[in-house]
Design a protein around this nucleic acid. Structure first.
Length: 435
DNA sequence: CTTCCTATCT
DNA sequence: TAGATAGGAA
């Protein structure tokens, strides 16, 4: 395949403008074909995102451009890995489909997902594993939210005091338990990627690590009872989280989740302000397959670029998932709250009035969300803006009458303008219609 | 000089 | 086509 070659980069040219490649000591040795395996890419993405932590980015392209190959190589600290290999891979990594870029939308706040978890207990397994792996878990019935559920449930914050937990089952070959390298070397975390702490003393991030799932298959077995990767991410907060980041810099890509074992519950229900939850979150290609089938028809990506700030909000991001109907709801038993991503497309699609155009490429923090949910009652009844909500205008069109021509001005100069929902989305594919 | 960036090659 | 290479630019 690729033979070793002389690296003439940086070498002076001769009079003919040619690189003087006859210098022996520039021969690159030990350069072998670098196959970017899944694990290697995951690590690569971890480093990329880790390095990019805190760096502003407004698009997926910038997301990758934040990091330079050299520092990536250094942080990855993989013997034999060259800068050019990383650069080459970085080049390919940031090549995303156009529809991906154009469909990026920024959402300041997402509708709320309620998750009632009154009881909790400690998982015995996790206790035995030591504090590093100790996460409180709940032993309750599931809270099951679906797209068909009244949007009212999604909107009303429930100011409850609830613990948080993160449950990671089965560490065997569990990508969630991969070690993570800190850039500065100050912290070498050998635990789960999710640096979970106890229920007390959470002054900073609950989950501040970088989580990258790419082309990862969760529970790709048809066995409905076997859970190879049971990922329960619960961020149900009852403590003071002022100024903290609940989940930051999360990348979820190409995840195929079977058997309902992806349970992402980000439930920030406290009244504390300035909490960021799942900021800088990028989710793509999520397939939820309750029947153990592999559905590859998830090909839209969404992007949430800026931190979700200002008050109790949660955000669960997934777009254009495929949900196989007819699954056994009993499989959700391991989750305290289950978010069915089905029909969540309306949160991310570039729907809405054509006249609104939903511009989002200009760095605006929020555009418009348009609702067309037949399950909803009168908008005034179902979508009240409780106590000083940041939502200024919420629009619902039960009759599917199309986009509102009214302007619905934002009288408070709030971050939110209009909200539009379309709960009739049934398919997984709604490609970006923009050019 | 090194590294970045991107087109091009294999 | 994934990954390496080339070569100009910074």
């Amino acid at each position: 395949m690729l033979q070793r070659k002389r690296d003439t980069k940086g070498m002076k040219k001769n009079n003919e403008g040619e690189r003087q490649n006859n210098v022996i000591d520039k021969v690159v040795t030990g350069k072998e074909f670098r196959e970017w395996t899944e694990d290697l890419h995951v690590r690569f993405m971890q480093v990329v995102h880790q390095l990019g932590e805190g760096r502003k980015f407004t698009s997926l392209i910038i997301f990758f451009y934040r990091c330079f190959p050299k520092e990536i190589v250094e942080v990855m600290s993989l013997p034999g890995l060259t800068r050019m290999q990383v650069a080459s891979h970085l080049q390919r990594s940031k090549n995303v489909p156009h529809e991906t870029k154009s469909s990026f939308r920024k959402f300041r706040v997402m509708p709320y997902l309620q998750a009632n978890v009154p009881n909790q207990q400690w998982n015995q397994d996790q206790i035995q594993r030591g504090t590093e792996y100790s996460f409180p878990t709940h032993n309750t019935k599931n809270t099951f939210a679906r797209g068909e559920t009244s949007i009212q449930q999604l909107y009303r914050p429930q100011f409850q005091v609830q613990p948080h937990y993160l449950n990671i089952n089965n560490s065997f070959n569990n990508p969630f338990l991969s070690p993570q390298t800190n850039v500065t070397g100050e912290l070498q975390q050998r635990g789960p990627l999710f640096g979970m702490l106890g229920s007390q003393g959470l002054q900073d991030s609950i989950i501040g690590n970088t989580n990258f799932w790419r082309a990862m298959t969760l529970n790709n077995e048809d066995n409905l009872t076997e859970k190879n990767y049971n990922f329960d991410l619960n961020v149900v907060e009852g403590a003071t989280y002022s100024g903290s980041r609940i989940v930051s810099s999360t990348y979820i890509g190409n995840a195929i989740i079977n058997n309902y074992n992806l349970n992402v519950i980000a439930d920030n229900v406290t009244t504390y302000s300035s909490s960021a939850m799942m900021s800088d979150t990028y989710v793509e290609n999520v397939t939820i397959n309750g029947l153990g089938e592999t559905n590859t028809n998830a090909n839209s990506q969404q992007y949430v670029g800026e931190p979700i700030m200002s008050g109790p909000r949660n955000i669960v991001v997934a777009s254009h998932e495929n949900y196989v109907v007819g699954s056994n709801s009993n499989e959700k038993e391991n989750s305290d709250a289950y978010l069915n991503f089905n029909n969540m497309d309306y949160l991310f699609q570039n729907l809405g009035p054509s006249g609104a155009n939903l511009p989002n490429e200009q760095g605006n923090e929020f555009d418009q969300v348009y609702s067309n949910n037949q399950n909803l009652g009168p908008p005034s009844a179902n979508l009240p803006n409780q106590q000083d909500s940041e939502f200024d205008q919420v629009y619902s069109d039960d009759q599917n009458l199309g986009p509102p021509s009214a302007n619905l001005p934002n009288e408070h100069d709030s971050e939110f303008d209009q909200v539009y929902f379309d709960d009739q989305v049934t398919g997984a594919s709604t490609p970006d219609s923009q050019e």
